[in-house]
Simulated scan of single mutants.
Amino acid sequence: MRLLRTVAFTLLVLLGLGACSGSDDAGTADSSGGDDGAVEQAADADGAEGGGDGEESSREVVTTGSLTLVAADPSPAMDEVVRLVEGVGGRVEERTEQARTEGSEAYGWLTVRVPAAELTATVDAVEELGEVTDLSISSEDVTRRGRDLDARIAALQTSTERLLTLMAEAESNEALLAAEGALSQRQSELESLQSERAYLSEQVAMSSLHITVSADRPAQLEAGGFLGGLETGWNALVTFASGVLVVLGAVLPWLLVLGVPLALVAVVARRRRRATAKAAPAG
């Protein structure tokens, strides 16, 4: 009789696992449908009171943005951006700065997270720090994904509670071990889904903003007219002078090696001619 009850309990556990698997696949759609119905009922109730604003407020949207800020000095501008972000309850996730070098201007990057409701105000505040270019804001509606995760989490929670009940009623070690194995698997899946749901909710609540900060560049005159001719002439003069210096640098070693002895020979020859010229009248 005890063996019969053990076999029957094991069958109940297996049936429970089958029902749990079914609840993850088919039950997800039912739960999503139930969530949709609940949301629709809430929207209808809110619509009767406030014109249907409840449906819009229940939607989940992930918003991201990017912009380029041109400022006179990037480093203080980045400090000011950080102050603005922290002032609205946001945070800085990444900050990179590059100092000015001989061949490039100073620049930097910022990746910040701000409350979704404060994104527009933050962008407006950043625009007051300099010239904002290449502004881009994008949104992704993740309402369906969030509801699907909620439905799967609810199904797994129900499955976990059912397995806990079966474990409490187990009359043998075999049945208890089977229920514990199933419960461990369900709890692992539940924790994974809850972590994914928490990440999605955080993405909805906090928007990402990528900011590139660059320095002002001095205005450059276009070639043409008097200024263009002056620039061309100056460049030609610099090129000629550079060429002369190159030739002089190449010839100078030869002048030192050959010119000095030749100069000595010329001096000696001139003295001899003078001596010969003085001796001839005397004779």
Rank of each mutant, 00 (worst) to 15 (best):
F9P: 04
S138N: 09
K278Y: 15
V247S: 14
L11T: 12
V213H: 03
L209H: 03
L135G: 00
A263T: 14
V7W: 08
D25R: 14
Q157I: 04
V112G: 00
T120V: 13
V204A: 10
E191P: 02
A175G: 03
A263L: 15
Q187H: 04
D46P: 00
S31A: 11
S104P: 11
S195C: 07
V81M: 03
G16D: 05
A175T: 02
S184Y: 02
S195P: 02
V268W: 11
T276R: 13
R271Q: 10
R273C: 06
L135H: 03
G224W: 10
L209V: 08
G249K: 08
E49H: 09
A241D: 14
R100I: 04
L119G: 00
A279W: 10
L156C: 09
D24R: 10
D150R: 01
L176W: 01
D73I: 01
T101W: 11
V81H: 02
E55P: 04
A106R: 05
A280F: 11
F226D: 11
R186G: 03
A121Q: 13
T96V: 08
G283I: 15
R147P: 01
V132G: 03
A29N: 08
V112L: 06
Q41V: 07
W254A: 10
R162G: 01
V267T: 13
A125Q: 06
E118R: 07
L221G: 09
D24Q: 14
T28D: 05
G259V: 14
T64A: 07
S192V: 08
A77S: 04
E118T: 05
R91F: 06
T96L: 06
E97V: 10
A236D: 12
T111R: 01
A269S: 08
A117D: 12
T111E: 04
S159A: 13
T143F: 02
G130E: 02
A72H: 12
W254E: 03
P261C: 10
L245M: 15
A154E: 10
S136W: 00
G27N: 04
S57L: 11
A106G: 08
A241C: 14
L256R: 15
R5E: 09
L190R: 05
D73S: 00
L200D: 09
L262D: 12
A48C: 04
H210R: 15
G181A: 13
P115D: 00
M78D: 03
S138K: 08
M167V: 05
A215S: 13
S138W: 07
L183R: 11
L252H: 15
E189Q: 12
M206Q: 02
P76K: 10
A42T: 05
R197T: 11
E231V: 15
G33H: 09
L156H: 05
T28S: 07
S188F: 09
A77L: 02
S57H: 12
V260K: 12
A117R: 13
S242H: 12
S139C: 08
A19D: 07
R270L: 10
T158D: 01
L200W: 12
D44H: 05
A279E: 09
G50A: 13
S21Y: 11
Q203I: 01
L264F: 15
R272N: 11
T232V: 15
P253M: 12
V251W: 12
D44T: 03
R113S: 02
